[in-house]
Design a protein around this nucleic acid. Structure first.
Lengths: 204, 204
DNA sequence: CTAGAATCGGACTGGCGACTCCGAATACAA
DNA sequence: TTGTATTCGGAGTCGCCAGTCCGATTCTAG
């Protein structure tokens, strides 16, 4: 029926100021949400970005949409990082470096996921594009590390994700006590290593 | 100046219906918050408890106060459980059983802590009475398990708390996939055991 | 430079939810 | 049973915040 399937971004290339504003909004939103939680009034973000609420809502028709956009951009960066590490490091090092980095990222990726799903968004769906990429990157990071004997072989991506999220939360909980953070980290890392049993006495 | 320090519960023993209502509210609140998150309108809880909002707000002058009360009652039960296990089981078993139980408790203790601190409550303060008790129970559970060689010796109560909270979140994240839950659990549990090094080949 | 399309800004609206208030209902002491 | 202190109930208030609307402003094609 419709001449156009009704979902095509008409390829109209967004005016210069608009593009700028959109970018700025995303940037500011991430900072503000991270620093003060996802409950900050939308208006705050607009103000902080030097923009009217109207503008914000034109770019992101819903607070939820904004949240989602921020989340996606983060996941995107994570996927990149995973890929980069996989290329530059030893499988084991890459894996643990990535793990440490994700978990340290001093903030609230969790709160985002929560806010989203609380708002009734199907995160798995929303995440699917970028999420797919991330999941692939994670899968290969994990598989390589397992093949190299650095990580116990019985784990899959779902477990890894859970471990990332949960460990992240542990760090949040511990705040600044870096000694405690390290000890807690050690628990998880040690648990991630393959159980000593079969003979394969690597560096790990 | 004041004849009475202004903070004494005047020991007036609360009318029977009032006591009943209060209890019912706490019970219902825990169930509802757990099932549907801490954002449910206060009125919902009143209705579910078969009570007017007015009543609810007399007993708990603030939504936050209600949340806090629920949280405290939970912590209280946890402390009891810890003590019970410590008495009935082997140090190692007690520790791991407690850990598993806290973490499994299919719900949202986290969300509570979050909601509270988001609301600007000093959780450590609010928690201090019951929290003190809990912390003591945890401390002895942990110390015993460590003394028995079941748990690595470099952990303290803060680390343990973080591990509990974080692992809890992992389970939340994994939902119903019990196989994945177990594998993830295994990571943490293995990490909690003392690193194989010095000779002390116990059952653990 | 100019027309006119695209974008901006922020006052305004609507709805929701925490909390109040007070007449009605209830418990309990005497 | 009755008087009264206590508690209940829920309609109503108030503030907050997501999202709308449209005149003013800015961009850009020609």
């Amino acid at each position: 029926m419709p001449t156009r399937p009704a979902e095509q971004p008409p390829a109209r290339p967004l005016r210069a100021d608009a593009r700028r504003n959109r970018a700025r909004l995303l940037e500011v939103a991430e900072a503000v949400f991270t620093a003060r939680g996802t409950t900050v009034p939308t208006e705050e973000i607009a103000r902080e970005a030097g923009v009217g609420v109207g503008t914000l809502f034109r770019h992101f028709p819903t607070k939820e949409a904004l949240l989602e956009a921020v989340l996606l951009s983060r996941l995107d960066r994570l996927a990149e990082e995973a890929t980069r590490l996989a290329a530059d490091e030893t499988p084991g090092d890459a894996f643990f470096a990535f793990f440490a980095q994700v978990v340290d990222h001093s903030s609230t990726k969790n709160a985002f996921a929560e806010a989203l799903s609380a708002a009734g968004v199907d995160v798995r769906q929303a995440t699917s594009d970028v999420g797919q990429t991330l999941r692939k990157a994670l899968a290969s990071l994990l598989a390589d590390a397992q093949r190299a004997g650095a990580v116990r072989p019985d784990l899959g991506v779902p477990e890894l994700t859970a471990l990332l999220v949960g460990t992240h939360r542990m760090m949040e909980h511990l705040g600044d006590d870096s000694a405690a953070r390290e000890r807690t980290f050690a628990v998880v890392f040690d648990g991630l290593r393959p159980p000593r049993a079969s003979g394969d006495p690597k560096a790990w």
